[in-house]
Design a binder for these strands. Structure first.
Lengths: 112, 112
DNA sequence: ATCAATACATAGATTAAGGAGGTATAATTG
DNA sequence: CAATTATACCTCCTTAATCTATGTATTGAT
């Protein structure tokens, strides 16, 4: 299914950008956060997340920086850029169109 | 992104089954119908639809029969079975969970 | 007569996402 | 203290969904 142009294509990207829009985070934290915020409905897989994060970085949507935690453990934090915020807004718009249309089509009272 | 079990996986299948739940249809007609019902947002590609239709048939979700149109042209109609209706209902439930969760996560008023 | 529309179909390419595995350190538990 | 679990990063390969491209054949319109 294609939606006019490029609708949806990568809903995970939207969720990742959305997480980062609420504050800088590191990868491992994002997995837990999304689980928490979705009441364990969504499970972000590392094999899915890290490639997306690296792709977003190379496209200038996020910026990464290393920081030490209290325990001396290294963490790679990601920060959403203004370009990334624009992408997020686009994706949200697309999601609205997509989900509203699905709901209309499947829920709709259409008489033959 | 995976949703607990098998959520969503093939939203196109849901839309196709949904179309058939409103009456028997032939492939070519379904393409036009979905376009119409979605105000041209969804474009069902034949290369996507036919394989799905054949898979649904082999799994007993739909049944096919040939019929001649007025113009003598052959049409292959599809009819949703009760098994197919059950599958449709499951898919709709999954869609509700999925879309509600996305909306909660991205729209949600979460304070850090 | 030619072109667009109707109507079916498949093969191969593309892409998103997941599964499985790998490295390394810190915290917990027996 | 040793073993396990949790933290934290990463990549390669596969699977599955979908699209692109193509093919056949008939009918209707110009």
């Amino acid at each position: 299914m294609k939606f006019d142009k490029e609708l949806i294509k990568g809903g995970t990207t939207m969720l990742i950008l959305n997480l980062l829009s609420t504050g800088d985070m590191y990868g491992y934290q994002m997995v837990r956060e999304l689980e928490k915020r979705s009441d364990n409905i969504f499970t972000l897989k590392e094999g899915t997340m890290y490639p997306i994060l690296h792709s977003l970085e190379s496209r200038g949507m996020v910026e990464a920086y290393w920081e030490d935690s209290d325990s001396g453990r290294k963490r790679k934090y990601y920060h959403i850029t203004s370009k990334g915020k624009r992408l997020l807004n686009e994706k949200k718009k697309e999601w609205k169109i997509y989900s509203n249309t699905v709901n209309r089509v499947i829920g709709g009272a259409h008489l033959a």
